[in-house]
């Protein structure tokens, strides 16, 4: 164990303090971003930040402060859970948002998903991207052909 008051002890404490400050700052910026950004997907970008990097920093800081084997392993587990679950929930929320029309089209520079869905609907009378694998393949091939002709 590291002796109380030794140089290494001080360094670790300072490092933990820096990590805590940085992680809290990321959480604050995420709050600002989520209150400020104009549409759902942009807000989700802001939300990913404290969930991944901010939490990682705070947990590392906590591990540096506590320095007990058991606790560190639990913290690793927390971070692992977060890293596994954050993309899944982000994908599900993002997809549900897109499919329920929560994306503001006027803010998008490019929207190739809507283009492709429209192309699918032109080729066959289908409404669902998953019902229409063949149509999707065909539509993508057409798009590529048009792109290479141009």
């Amino acid at each position: 164990m590291i002796a109380e008051g030794s140089i290494l002890d001080t360094v670790l404490h300072v490092l933990a303090a820096v990590l805590f400050l940085a992680g809290s700052f990321l959480a604050m910026v995420a709050g600002l971003g989520i209150a400020r950004f104009p549409d759902l997907l942009a807000r989700m970008h802001a939300a990913t930040k404290p969930q991944v990097l901010g939490l990682g920093m705070l947990l590392t800081g906590l591990a540096l402060e506590i320095r007990t084997g058991v606790v560190i392993w639990t913290l690793v587990l927390v971070l692992l859970f977060q890293l596994i679950t954050a993309p899944v929930s982000a994908h599900m929320v993002g997809r549900a948002g897109y499919r329920t029309g929560r994306v503001r089209d006027d803010l998008l520079v490019v929207d190739e998903l809507t283009d492709d869905l429209a192309a699918v609907r032109r080729t066959e009378h289908v409404t669902d991207i998953d019902d229409a694998d063949d149509a999707m393949v065909q539509a993508l091939a057409d798009t590529e052909k048009r792109g290479s002709d141009a």
Partner: peptide, 23 residues
Amino acid sequence: ADLCSLVPGSIIVEAHRATGTLY
């Protein structure tokens, strides 16, 4: 798709298996 969603600034909104396409 997972790793791209993990990095802030990009989210996968749709994935299509048959064509191997990510949106």
